[in-house]
Amino acid sequence: MNVVVCVKQIPDPATPGKLDPNTKTLVREGKLILDDSDAYGVEMALQLADKAGGGEVTLVSMAPNEEVGGLRTALAMGAAKAILVSDESLKGADALTTAKVLAAAIKRAEPDLVIAATESTDGYTGTTPVQVAELLGLPAVTFAKHVEIDGSTVKVDRQTEAGYDEVECPLPALVTVTAGVVEPRYPSFKGIMAAKGKPVDTLKVGDLGIEAPAVGQQVVDVAAAEERQAGEIVVDEGDAHERVVAFLEQLKVI
């Protein structure tokens, strides 16, 4: 079974995000890393391909400056190869534009299953994967907390407001996974060494046979959100519970 995993490479979330004051798009400079959200997808794909007894896991990523930092991490986990689309014309791409590019790249791998995360850590639009599915003419099951393959059917426990639904869908299909669907492995030393030699096919938009899609939205203003003020801080010396109770009393919730 061939699985494609969409992996986003993002600035380290530990360093706060920045918007370019002129273009008002996300600043993506310096090293990019594998989005933690997508590590779950990579692990899921590896486990499913393994259980199916064969097939490859291919990574697909769109990132500026031919960035491969995050891809190497996912290759070290065990993915076989990667397709990277990197093109100046994609600067400031919105989710639909991204989806068009990813869909064109995914087509090349002819997958049985496409996996993405429910949402990325930096952009968190949560729409890219479904847009990809629609562009590829695939059914999709989103918010998976458990995924199994049974012959040519994918069986998913999909989170809902009330609990979860068991959903079945014939392959090929796209599935988005939540954190907690599986525990991502740490790349082994052997994996890290092997990753260095794995193929990364770096493409321009033109190579995909599509035109640079137009972006239909723009940022018009950026401002800091109103900040909440910190209140009183009390160090517990055995009686802090009294402060809590008094506070609740004052608010009339007790």
């Binding site: 003419g137 059914p139 009330a162 609990g163 979860y164 959903v167 869908c169």
Partner: peptide, 12 residues
């Protein structure tokens, strides 16, 4: 084909 995903069981 895009509409092939079906709910077979709900859990509340």
């Amino acid at each position: 084909a895009t509409n092939a995903a079906k709910i077979v069981q709900r859990h509340v």
